[in-house]
Design a protein around this nucleic acid. Structure first.
Length: 487
RNA sequence: GGCACGGUGGCCGAAUGGAAUAGGCAAAGGUCUGCAAAACCUUUUAUAGCGGUUCGAUUCCGCUCUGUGCCUCCA
């Protein structure tokens, strides 16, 4: 009665594709190989919780594809150039340059500093590193070559040392707006600073001429300048994954214009209809107080805020994010975070109990356990429905408790095997390791001695002193939960 | 103005053309207990509104109300 053969599971993964606007069965271009590109951060600031959501989600995608036996090439870029910051339609300045001015550091020091923070933040969240992490400024030559080809194909034009994408000519040959369903004519006109140079107000920049005081600039056939925002992703994805790969992802706010422009650039580059990626995936936003958490709205929180202010671990933050489906808006609130904590602890406690129980490998197979395993796989296979999967993991935990408490003979072996797969391998929770820090270890011993001391007082029924010790420990965040005293 | 995704109990959050068995939190009750807490077990409550299609709609279609996001800074 074993329903969950690996191939059946593998052939039933459905992914919501922003390009086709429906759930498509996942099959890669080359059997057993998956190429995945995810738009990474611009490293001019710390990453906040909203950014983390996207990277945690694609970590699940990466982990699950590997679990299914695919060889995955995961590429996630670092943007260290090209994002212009506009204020009141007055000034345009590279975000990294602006930040370097504020902090009094060299632009490349800013890049280095926030790249390190980015990696550290994701490490703490147990997000796996991609296979390739290309950096935009490391691919200037390739970007220039790419722009040259688009120019050569007549889908771009030069004006005063800058290169703009020719949307009008593009529209004559291809459809612009396939991802977002946006019709160029229906888009709102805004006054852009560059608009004087552009043939059409909605043309976007491929290469921008550097002003005299613009520190980050490179030589090009069109003079000193720097690449536009969208070009780096087209170039680096094509370089490392080819002109057509399996999955392209990012936050939903990148769908338009960023991904739409990438699609247009790629089509112009090859001069033929091209999807760039077979599946396009977009993660919805994290909302706080009814609106999107973003750097520009200044309503963001960093992961470190959460660990400190809510006294929760990175595992619980991760769990919190996975309790909402990735295509839904995730609402940040104190209560939701505490719900996540309780649920997470419930599952982990059950797993810990399993580790303390001795059992033999099952001989009999139990149908309901197999059903439970199928349910779990079906959940994750249905467009990565992590909230549904978590509900099954909670159910599994309850089954474990029931078996252990009532001393039932049952299929603990399979339960243990699969709940571990789902929690640690696929959902990517960190297994608690022994603390290696020596100083911390001594503190732990001290606390343990206090607890033992208190136990002696309890045996003597000296409630006054034992309650006082418990209170003191509670003050510093160590919770004591008493059990019945053994005689 | 255009485009996209939503509206399910007190709250969060799944699913579905055929009795709402999701799940969790909260609440209530219980086990346990020196007390407190924790842990574990059990139970209650819901498809925004109006039409249409249908034997049957929460699900599909249309309209209304309403929320969020994108429209060249954004994960």
């Amino acid at each position: 009665m074993n329903h969950h053969s690996k191939n059946t599971i593998k052939n039933n993964l459905k992914i919501y594709n922003s390009l086709t606007k429906k759930k498509d069965i996942f099959y890669p271009i080359y059997p057993n190989h998956v190429g995945m590109y995810v738009c990474g951060p611009t490293v001019y600031n710390h990453i906040h919780l909203g950014n983390c959501r996207t990277f945690i989600f694609f970590d699940i995608v990466y982990r699950y594809l590997k679990h299914l036996g695919y060889q995955v090439k995961y590429v996630r870029n670092i943007t260290d150039i090209g994002h212009l910051f506009s204020e009141n339609n007055e000034l345009e300045e590279d975000k990294i340059i602006k930040r370097s001015r504020i902090e009094g550091l060299d632009p490349m020091e800013i890049v280095q500093k926030y790249t390190i923070y980015f990696h550290e933040s994701l490490n703490i969240l147990n997000v796996l590193r991609p296979n390739i992490e290309p950096i935009a400024t490391g691919h200037i030559t390739e970007q220039i070559e790419y722009v040259k080809k688009i120019l050569c194909n007549k889908f771009a034009y030069e004006k005063n040392g800058s290169i703009y994408f020719d949307l009008k000519n593009y529209s004559n040959h291809f459809l612009y707006g396939r991802l977002s369903n946006n019709n160029i004519k229906e888009l709102m006109d805004r006054n852009f600073l560059f608009s004087k140079e552009k043939r059409d107000i909605k043309d976007f920049c491929l290469w921008k001429k550097a002003k005299k005081n613009h520190i980050m600039n490179w030589n090009s056939p069109w003079g000193k300048g720097f690449p536009g925002w969208h070009i780096e992703c087209s170039v680096m994805s094509t370089k490392y994954l080819g002109g057509y790969f399996d999955i392209h992802g990012g936050g939903i706010d990148l769908k338009f214009p960023h991904h739409e422009c990438e699609l247009a650039q790629s089509t112009s580059f090859f001069n033929k209809k091209n999807d760039l990626s077979r599946y396009w995936m977009h993660v919805n936003m994290l909302n706080i107080n009814g609106e999107k958490m973003s750097k520009s709205k200044k309503n963001f929180m960093y992961p470190s805020h959460i660990y400190e202010n809510f006294k929760i671990s990175s595992n619980i933050l991760r769990f919190f994010m996975l309790q909402t489906h990735y295509r839904s808006i995730l609402i940040f609130s104190n209560k939701n975070l505490l719900d996540a904590k309780k649920n997470y602890n419930f599952i982990i406690n059950s797993i810990n109990k399993l580790n303390n129980v001795k059992f033999h490998k099952d001989i009999i197979s139990y149908d309901f356990i197999h059903q439970w395993i199928d349910d779990c796989y079906n959940a994750i296979n249905d467009d990565f429905n992590t909230p549904l999967l978590i509900s099954y993991l909670l159910k599994g935990s309850r089954i474990i408790n029931d078996i252990i408490i009532n001393n039932k003979k049952n299929s603990l072996y399979l339960l243990k095997k699969y709940i571990n797969y789902f929690m640690f391998e696929i959902l990517g929770f960190k297994k608690n390791k022994e603390e290696t820090n020596n100083y911390k270890k001594k503190l732990e011993i001290l606390v343990q001695r206090l607890i033992n001391l208190r136990k002696e007082y309890r045996i003597q029924k000296n409630w006054e002193v034992s309650d006082k010790i418990r209170k003191e420990l509670n003050h510093i965040g160590i919770l004591i939960n008493d059990h019945k005293l053994l005689k």
